[in-house]
């Protein structure tokens, strides 16, 4: 399927590929230094953070969560995300593999200093929690008119 997909030059796929390339570029093998509060690799859930002049975007890759059990809070520039994922164990079943995370988690992220804790949006879709934190107006680069 993938080979066939690669041969198509449909604009939809072109857009999608561009997005993928953008992500590969952003989060590719050249690793940015890790933060002091960052968890070890392999911790649940994996997190990506990106920034633009207008806002900071945080992505939590946490499939199968109940959004009601998520607790997202921000104090100054510290974003805390706590939640739990309980996997019900099937009765009368013989388990061969249990790799998926089961339990509580808590991650703390230190965001840039100019974020505005009053302007945060969060949405959960396809197993990804996306939190957008706007930056303060004053901190954005402004064009200065020369008289």
């Amino acid at each position: 399927m993938f080979g066939i997909l690669g041969d198509l030059d449909d604009s939809l796929f072109a857009d999608f590929r561009r997005m993928q390339e953008q992500m590969d570029e952003l989060f590719g093998p050249d690793r940015p230094p890790s933060g002091i509060r960052s968890a070890a690799r392999g911790s649940f859930p994996p997190i990506n953070v990106g920034s633009t002049p207008e806002r900071v975007d945080v992505y939590l890759f946490a499939a199968g969560l109940d959004p009601d059990k998520l607790d997202v809070s921000i104090q100054q520039n510290l974003l805390t995300i706590a939640g739990e994922r309980r996997l019900p164990r099937e009765e009368d079943a013989n388990y061969f593999r249990q790799e998926r995370f089961d339990g509580e988690f808590r991650r703390v992220l230190s965001l840039p200093d100019d974020v505005d804790p009053g302007r945060v949006d969060a949405a959960y879709r396809d197993g990804v929690l996306h939190i957008s934190i706007h930056r303060r107006e004053a901190a954005r680069p402004r064009r200065i008119a020369i008289k």
Partner: peptide, 24 residues
């Protein structure tokens, strides 16, 4: 089993932290 990650990202985003480094 194969799947592609598709998430909405603003134009010109720069990475600060990345645990997920692939889209596939």
């Amino acid at each position: 089993i194969e799947g592609e990650i598709s998430i909405s990202m603003p134009e010109g985003m720069e990475p600060i932290h990345a645990d997920v480094r692939a889209t596939h």
